[in-house]
Design a protein around this nucleic acid. Structure first.
Lengths: 251, 251
DNA sequence: CGTTGATTTGAGTAAGATCAAGTCGGGTGG
DNA sequence: CCACCCGACTTGATCTTACTCAAATCAACG
């Protein structure tokens, strides 16, 4: 029988957090790191499909996604669902719910995930005690909006093929900087229905677009593995050029 | 000859800012207000159609919209444009550009506008000197994302009629809490082409949807004046229930 | 083997785009 | 005052993209 970690105690100390080693993340000072460590409440695991934040629920839970994939979504009363964004390791989530009392969107795990949750009032203290980290959180919030803006541009103004191409480029790049690409291939847990819900398409049409990209030789996507064969051309199809990614903060 | 205000000095002192009187805005402490006043650089006017922030430009300008309407947008290389959100008096803008060095979206004035601009490094200082206001800024950033999320849900999953209805409800409510509704009518500066670009529709189809709402007796929209005759029903059409608006900070 | 979830394929349809002319109203200059 | 111009809005006709419905395939798993 394996030993259960005591609740309330982080299993991996933040100093040895594997994410911090990645080049995307900003270095933090020793003092800041100590604060972060002290304000982490627990490291918790959830299985694939678990609801991490309930849409309309009242959690104030703020967390960093340590490993695994998740997605933010909203639903209409009749069940139509829109996926707002995909969360990858290193992403901070739940800020909105924490700041507004009611979660304006749900969050669901796409794979098994591990979260680092913060104390409830952590944000208030953070601002007071570590203004620089406070600015980082604001940066993350602004960055979150930028990502949603990108998706909105796609859904509003790109056609179906462009949208699918754009999403694949977008996720491929983000996953890359989260260190998830091994040997040119990426473990890709989204079903075609998820892609459809992200892009505002029907899943049948999404399927046909993916096949088209396959036949064009741009990608391979099979059994949850994504390979991008021709990134430049895929970008061309997507009409998508992202700006060079700045180094981002990690809490 | 009228006396020109000295550059760098706000014309209206923040203490007497007409916006602060509105019930939507959170009260601020005397000390915080003094800080805000001291960090405002200038009050500037721009004519209708002016570019306030250039897409891809390098301003770090953060500002509060004092009066008038504006909109944030992104364009594809071939000219297709997506309006990301509408800015109303009291909205804080330019945070993203300020925090990321390059403006990920443009901002254009829909009417003549007046802006209250901040000093360039204001945000850093704000966090250090007034952590509570710092949290407020983060709140605003998170709120900005929530608004974009709402639009994304519409554009992704609502049909054309629902989208138009939703946008009108949304703007009517927001304009209401900005104190812009006088005698049941609202000066509404968006052209139908703007509405189309916000909702990811063609302007022809947008026109037909508006006419349908008119014939249903739900709204009157003519010569830049919007009246909502049956808010409840319009909401029903939109499948849109907003959560009760919390009191928001104003910088 | 049967069940379940994901993907694929085919056929018919509809929502919304596109193209092409108008109209309407307000301004401008003769 | 009138002619005209321009931008916003309207209308009609046609076309296309993407949706819907339906069924088949396929792999994983108990």
């Amino acid at each position: 029988m394996t030993r259960q970690p005591r609740p309330g105690v982080a299993v991996t100390p933040c100093t040895r957090c594997p994410l911090r080693a990645l080049p995307t993340f900003k270095p933090v000072s020793r003092g800041e790191l100590t604060w972060i460590q002290a304000n982490k409440r627990a490291e918790r695991g959830f299985p694939r499909g678990a609801t991490l934040v309930e849409e309309g629920g009242q959690t104030r839970r703020v967390f960093t996604l340590l490993s695994g994939w998740a997605f933010r979504f909203k639903t209409l009363t009749d069940g139509r669902r829109q996926i707002l964004n995909i969360l990858l390791p290193g992403d901070l989530a739940g800020l909105q719910a924490s700041l507004m009392d009611v979660a304006p969107h749900g969050i669901e795990a796409l794979t098994d995930v591990r979260l680092c949750t913060f104390r409830d009032a952590a944000m208030e203290d953070l601002m007071r005690e570590h203004p620089k980290l406070g600015l980082d959180v604001t940066w993350l919030a602004a960055q979150g909006e930028r990502l949603t803006d990108d998706v909105l541009l796609s859904v509003g103004r790109r056609n179906a093929l462009e949208r699918v191409a754009m999403l694949l480029v977008y996720l491929y790049k983000r996953a890359g900087s989260a260190g998830l690409i091994t040997g040119g291939a990426l473990a890709f847990p989204l079903t075609q229905a998820h892609i459809a819900d992200t892009l505002g398409l029907s899943f049948v049409h999404t399927n046909r677009c993916i096949q088209r990209l396959r036949k064009l030789g741009l990608i391979q996507l099979d059994k949850g593995q994504l390979q991008v064969n021709d990134l430049r051309l895929l970008r061309r199809v997507a009409e998508y050029w992202e700006q060079p990614a700045p180094s981002r903060p990690l809490l």
